[in-house]
Design a protein around this nucleic acid. Structure first.
Lengths: 255, 255
DNA sequence: AGAACGTTGTGCGATAAACGCACATTATGA
DNA sequence: TCATAATGTGCGTTTATCGCACAACGTTCT
């Protein structure tokens, strides 16, 4: 067992196939071969081979003109959901929190410069886009994202922010890395983060870290509501105690 | 444009990689190379190449001994969730139904001989296994599965049942294809299906089809509870009206 | 109608990528 | 301590993948 393996063995076909799956999204529910080739930067022949293989395996279907994913691809994401303890652990707590507060609550992880939802209990539809497990949002302008960035090495957080090329999503979005660094320092000190309409106008959100038994921040959870129902100050006053209690309750349960 | 393409181009590497991802599940959250090779019937070398590639792409991680999936694989399942209208449409309705009834409700599709959860609102943890979007259960012994089978061609339903090799999950599970066929006929006639502790002891579930604007059955939804809280008859009496109302409400909204 | 364009399916030779074996090395456990 | 099993690496072989070129097809112009 000597040094690390060279990247000599790199299954290119697998990489291409996964890219093909990922190029389907809300705006592109059905795609022709040429569309996929363009979206993935593959040759038409390669895109076609991928799509044909995916169809043969049941992950996609073809109506003679367009390809479309099938629910079978859920197996892939579910492989992680089922094999990871955290989502199953936090989901019932989110549901209770959501029921008690009559607001939506979520939990997520940091992945690169994005946050990934791993649990959610919605009270009403609050955002224009639907949120669900697996949804990804930019970390720099979300309450949970800022929490997760705040509890990392500042240089690394900065790098992740810049890697995400922050763009303003509302007139209130802070995109300047220096200002964000100052905000993260505050978040780290206070132990929670509130984001007021920086992701979407009318949306306000309060997040806290999820800490494991060893004291490491491994995820974040939040409560979000509409600004006309509660101001930022309101939310902190009304929900922070319950959130702290949930945080403490989960801490010894997370390995 | 002549006859159908031969399966000459079949990207074997893609098939293997997807199989590797899917071999992770609740019972196998971290796997060594040899474990994956056994689970997928690949050679150790091939399994290793897949895992290395997945790691390089960020879908898996390696701690020197075991491989583990990362939340990045959620991108794959999310590609379908985002590109399909149905899950986003039904989720808020499930949450309302669940809130009104104080019981858990779910929606699912039929995929082969299994049902796939595409939405869920849990009121409390009722099953020993955690249910979430992407979870798969056998169709033949679940209320939603029987609904979805009942509204298909009986011969096809029969074929799907047999393909699934029905096994009894509780002492009450019906596994005989002939008896199942009779049950499906009843379900079709009544328009709903109740399953009483055939999936798990103590669990009782009432399902109905989700019908689109053209009158086609495309999915199913259910309410499930614990037998000590409500008998089968209770559930039909208490929940059927609300479920019928939800069914009618959704019908014109589903394309 | 006819032409020009974009898209698709197919075949094929060339290339490199994936294969699977063997060997050395290192845990793990009886 | 020895035996078993798992891992990393290298290499010759095979075959899977590539990307081009061509023909067929549908659309949209003039």
């Amino acid at each position: 067992m000597a040094g690390e393996a060279a990247d000599r063995d790199h299954m290119a076909a697998l990489e291409k196939g996964l890219a093909v799956i990922e190029c389907f999204d809300a705006a592109h529910d059905k795609l022709a071969i040429a569309d996929v080739a363009r979206a993935t930067d593959l040759s038409r022949a390669a895109a076609r081979r991928c799509l044909l293989t995916l169809t043969k395996l049941g992950y996609a279907e073809f109506d003679g003109k367009f390809f479309r994913l099938t629910p079978r691809v859920l197996r892939l994401g579910h492989a992680w959901l089922a094999s990871s303890a955290l989502p199953q652990l936090v989901q019932p707590f989110l549901e209770r929190l959501s029921e008690e507060t009559h607001e939506s609550s979520s939990a997520c992880l940091l992945d690169g410069h994005e946050i990934v939802y791993i649990g959610r209990s919605a009270q009403r539809r609050i955002m224009s886009v639907g949120l669900s497990v697996g949804t990804r949002l930019p970390a720099f302008c979300t309450s949970m994202g800022r929490v997760l960035l705040a509890f990392r090495d500042p240089a690394e957080a900065q790098a992740r922010i810049i890697a995400g090329k922050p763009r303003a999503l509302t007139p209130r979005t802070v995109t300047d890395p220096a200002k964000l660094a100052a905000i993260l320092a505050d978040v780290r000190e206070q132990g929670h983060c509130i984001v007021d309409q920086e992701l979407e106008l009318g949306l306000i959100s309060l997040a806290m870290p999820l800490v494991n038994a060893r004291g490491e921040v491994i995820a974040a959870f939040n409560i979000s509501g509409q600004v006309q129902r509660s101001s930022a100050g309101d939310m902190v006053a009304r929900f922070l105690p319950q959130m702290r209690s949930l945080q403490a309750m989960l801490r010894p349960l997370i390995t």
